[in-house]
């Protein structure tokens, strides 16, 4: 069989966005190849969630067992390996998420099928799979071809497939779970929710995002001062939190917060995908970075290629002047 399979990702009783994106991608591929899209749903007490995605795939394979209540890469791997071995799909899609990163490489290795991770796009040309990936801090893309094989596995990056409406009605196939308990050697214990900080950056109309280009913790005072002049809050990219210069709740990006302010100003942020995914839907984006090749300029509306320490004092004065008029 040459079907397209995808794994539904869900967490805390909700289908995650990446699942809809993968089903959009999967339906388009299936249509081109004149085949079907099967969504694989591993979960517990799954009826409601399964019903909610019934219009998204041609078939939904449901494995309903308490062992799948929370994600566990090991139990997921055992079940998926069984299913893929039996069904032999041409291509299986998994999200390149915290779940998928744990699962996809180990699953592909166990099955001995060619796989790759973090793909922006996948095409099948003359039966051959071609994937597009990003490399070198987002500065280059690569087309990747695979060792030829009847079955492939790929993980897809979040946010690359705008979700499309669908009005098919999936056939539901229930499968008995090949696993009945989490393995001894890996057990889910609990979720740890993010700590709530003093400032909610998701509620602000103006966000000033600061990155590695700020160089020293002491320089944050400049940014704070600028942000208060413009009536905004200070947020940041990952390196600033890693260095413990700002708390985690100020981080914008895939492992931090998603913000959609009217105005987002980036200072010394290069624009790694992990940051961009958390701010690209802002109303207007102004980027200041001294590297003209920084990927942030692919996302910004207005760009200044200069040293932020040269621009910031003048920018503050211009804002003060504007407000005084």
């Amino acid at each position: 069989m040459s079907e397209i399979f995808m794994l539904i990702e869900h967490r805390q009783d909700a289908i995650r966005d990446i699942s809809y994106e993968m089903m959009t991608c999967g339906r388009a591929l299936a249509e081109k190849l004149n085949t079907k899209l099967t969504a694989v749903f591993l979960g517990y007490d799954a009826d409601k969630l399964v019903e909610s995605i019934r219009n998204q795939a041609h078939r939904i394979m449901v494995v309903d067992n308490e062992v799948f209540k929370e994600f566990n890469a090991e139990s997921y791997q055992i079940a998926l390996a069984e299913i893929i071995k039996k069904e032999n799909p041409l291509l299986t899609l998994i999200g390149h998420t915290a779940f998928g990163m744990d699962l996809c490489p180990a699953l592909g290795t166990q099955l001995g099928i060619p796989f790759t991770t973090d793909c922006l796009d996948v095409e099948i040309i003359d039966g051959k799979l071609i994937a597009t990936r990003q490399m070198y801090d987002g500065k280059l893309n690569a087309k990747i071809r695979f060792r030829e094989n009847p079955s492939y596995l790929v993980s897809l990056r979040t946010g690359c497939f705008p979700v499309r409406d669908s009005n098919i009605e999936a056939e539901i196939v229930n499968i008995e779970s090949p696993v009945s308990a989490e393995p001894d050697y890996r057990k889910f214990v609990e979720y740890i929710e993010a700590a709530i900080g003093d400032v909610d950056i998701t509620k602000a109309d103006v966000v000033v995002g600061v990155g590695r280009g700020i160089k020293k913790k002491e320089n944050l005072a400049l940014v704070e001062d600028f942000a208060s002049t413009i009536g905004g809050v200070v947020a940041c990219s990952r390196p600033i939190v890693d260095a413990e210069w700002l708390p985690k709740d100020r981080q914008v990006g895939s492992s931090g917060k998603t913000v959609k302010p009217k105005l987002y100003i980036t200072l010394g942020i290069s624009g790694a995908f992990q940051h961009v995914v958390g701010m690209k839907n802002s109303g207007t984006i102004i980027a200041i970075n001294k590297d003209p090749n920084a990927p942030i300029f692919n996302e910004a509306d207005y760009g200044i290629v200069d040293d932020l320490f040269r621009v910031l004092p003048a920018f503050k004065n211009s804002i003060l002047e504007m407000k005084s008029k």
């Binding site: 893309n141 690569a142 087309k143 996302e299």
Partner: peptide, 19 residues
Amino acid sequence: NTQIEELFIPPVAKQVKII
């Protein structure tokens, strides 16, 4: 598993106005 077929500059998602 895989080989790089070609590298290329990513297409621009949004046209930035450089000031």
